[in-house]
Simulated assay, not measured.
Amino acid sequence: MTALDDLPNVTSFFGIDLRTGSMIVAALGIVHPMAYGCSFFIPLSYLLVTIWILVALYFAASIVLFWGLAKDDTILCALWIWYAVIFVVLMLMMMMLLALVFTSRKQRNRVFIVILGMLWYILTIYFILVVNSHRKQLQGSSSNSDEGADRDT
């Protein structure tokens, strides 16, 4: 039993089955970094470079999730879940710092965009629950097939 088993279960991804929902989450994780291409107009800072590195790693983790879903590999799904948990916490903190910077510069439009980003990362918590619920289903089906194989011998 791991800490991931203690997370709550969801039954669907906005009415879609968990496998398809997990694939959508992986696709969103791959498309997600493209939103940061819009931030090239901002002067580089350590905060933005750190955000870009975290987002690039999230992109890589989403490719790992796709691979895990294609192969029905619970370990690869768990790898994405662990990184996504860390990613969401760090990104929410970074977005708060970015909002403070933009507020101090009186850049209302950028503060609004950062708030939307924070809402996106809060929604990502739901995405984590969807992928974790699918992982639990895969784990349950693999353990059931193992029990059946044990009974046959």
Rank of each mutant, 00 (worst) to 15 (best):
I53R: 07
W67L: 08
A70F: 09
I24T: 06
L98F: 10
I16N: 02
I42P: 06
S142W: 11
V89L: 09
A26E: 04
L138E: 00
W82E: 06
A60R: 01
L129S: 02
T153C: 10
V111C: 02
M91H: 04
A56H: 04
L116Y: 10
G140F: 08
N132A: 05
Y36W: 15
V25W: 00
L123F: 14
W82I: 07
I128C: 04
I122P: 03
Y46M: 11
F40Y: 08
T124V: 08
M91A: 02
G21Y: 07
M93I: 14
W82F: 12
R105C: 05
L97S: 10
D150N: 11
H134E: 07
F112R: 09
S142A: 14
S133Y: 05
W52P: 11
S143L: 08
V64P: 03
M95C: 14
M91C: 00
I128V: 01
L92M: 07
F127S: 08
S142N: 10
L76S: 01
G15D: 06
R110E: 13
T50L: 12
M93C: 13
L44E: 11
I122W: 09
F41Q: 10
I113S: 07
S12I: 01
V88E: 08
V31N: 03
D6F: 12
K71E: 13
G37K: 01
F13Q: 01
N144F: 14
S39M: 05
C77E: 05
I75L: 12
T11V: 03
H32T: 09
L90Q: 13
F14N: 06
F13A: 07
F66W: 12
D73S: 14
K136N: 05
D6Q: 11
L4W: 00
V64D: 12
F102V: 02
T2C: 09
S141I: 11
I51M: 07
F13G: 03
L65I: 09
S12C: 04
M118A: 14
L4I: 06
F112S: 11
I113W: 06
R19K: 14
V88C: 13
R110C: 09
V49C: 09
L123W: 15
G37W: 01
Y83S: 05
I42L: 06
I115Y: 07
G29M: 10
K106W: 06
L54T: 09
S141W: 12
Q139I: 14
C38F: 15
R110L: 13
F102P: 04
S143E: 14
S12G: 04
P43E: 06
V88T: 15
L79K: 13
R110Y: 11
F41S: 09
N9K: 15
T103N: 04
E147R: 14
V101H: 07
A60Q: 01
D150H: 09
L48I: 08
N132Y: 00
L69W: 00
V49N: 05
L90S: 09
V101L: 09
F59P: 01
T74Y: 05
L44T: 13
L54I: 12
D146F: 07
I63V: 11
N144E: 14
I75S: 15
I30V: 15
S142Y: 08
F112I: 14
F59A: 03
I125S: 13
Y46D: 10
I81R: 04
Y126A: 00
F40V: 11
L97T: 13
V131D: 03
G148H: 09
A70N: 10
P8Y: 00
D152L: 15
I81H: 06
I81W: 01
H134T: 00
M93K: 11
C38W: 11
